[in-house]
Design a protein around this nucleic acid. Structure first.
Length: 290
DNA sequence: CAAGTGCCTTTATC
DNA sequence: AGATAAAGGCACT
């Protein structure tokens, strides 16, 4: 199956899958392998041609955000020279539409970890609690369902390298199972309301909630603040804040809720309804180009 | 190679 | 409200 990308619909598969928004994609040769539910599929990009196997076009369009008008989005967030530089460097990076459950657990695990370690944890979890799927000559593992993680012993989760996050994953999985909670339905709420609901889960603070909202619930205005975005703001956008505030967060290693809200609100106001796109370009630029 | 630092933070406590 | 400490362990230097 193929999709021909129109020139007005820029897309860069490699950057999109490498920028750290999703943790379970695997590149073998020129093919990217991904697992969605119990289905493994592969996809590659050759110039303006997208080729894929074992998945339908509708899913590809949705998952890779190909229905978003990226040209329009990028022109809207191009507010200054710094973001323009990031956009030029990673032109075609799109925000994925991930599965909310996998996204929630992934970002609960992601706190205070680097990307390599996050990938390792999620692979361990999938190997231990997911289902083995063979595709081409490779073995893959589906992401564990909530019931499976809810039943897991704390020690088993710790053994996957989760550390103190094991408790949060266990509690969150139990909360999802007990009420038959439909994470997808949060997408129907407004940004603020949906975030408030997410904060009820164990191990979910403002940062994790924003990531889940942006990467899986379609809230493109969410502007997650992590250490890299904080650095980018300090370097390039400090003139948007009082001196006192900048000095305060400069010598603190972590942000409190009030400081987080100020930084994130700046992003939403400054970049507008697609602030999340700006966030991801800035994030990837800060991590790789500075 | 050992030891130190940093990591897409949250929670508990004061 | 706001500050502070504690919480795995892996990857990188």
């Amino acid at each position: 199956m193929k999709i021909l990308l129109k020139p007005s619909y820029p897309f860069n598969l490699d950057v999109t899958l490498c920028c750290g928004q999703a943790f379970r994609w695997d590149k073998q040769g020129e093919w990217w392998y991904g697992i969605v539910g119990r289905n493994v599929f592969k996809i590659r990009q050759i110039n303006d041609k997208l080729e894929f196997e074992n998945v339908d076009t509708r899913f590809v369009r949705d998952y890779f955000g190909l229905n978003d008008d990226l040209s329009k989005i990028l022109s809207e967030i191009s507010r200054d020279t710094h973001i323009k530089r990031a956009i030029d460097t990673f032109y075609g990076l799109r925000i994925l539409h991930q599965n909310p459950w996998e996204c929630l657990i992934s970002y609960v695990c992601a706190t205070y970890k680097n990307i390599q370690a996050i990938k390792q944890m999620l692979l361990n979890l999938s190997r231990r609690f997911g289902e083995k799927i063979c595709f081409d000559e490779y073995k893959f593992y589906s992401f564990p369902i909530a019931q499976k993680l809810a039943k897991a012993k704390l020690q088993e989760l710790v053994a996957c390298g989760l550390g103190y996050r094991a408790k949060y994953v266990s509690e969150t999985a139990k909360m999802i199972c007990e009420n038959g909670f439909e994470l997808e339905s949060l997408g129907e709420l407004g940004y603020e309301q949906a975030r408030k609901e997410l904060l009820n889960f164990s191990g979910v603070g403002l940062k994790v909630a924003d990531c889940v909202l942006l990467f899986s619930l379609g809230k493109s205005e969410a502007f997650p603040i992590d250490v890299w975005i904080k650095r980018a703001v300090l370097k390039h956008y400090s003139n948007h804040f009082p001196n006192k505030f900048i000095k305060k967060i400069l010598d603190k290693q972590s942000l409190n809720d009030s400081e987080y809200r100020k930084l994130s609100l700046f992003g939403r106001k400054y970049f507008g309804e697609y602030a999340g796109y700006a966030q991801e370009y800035l994030y990837h630029y800060e991590r790789t180009q500075s």
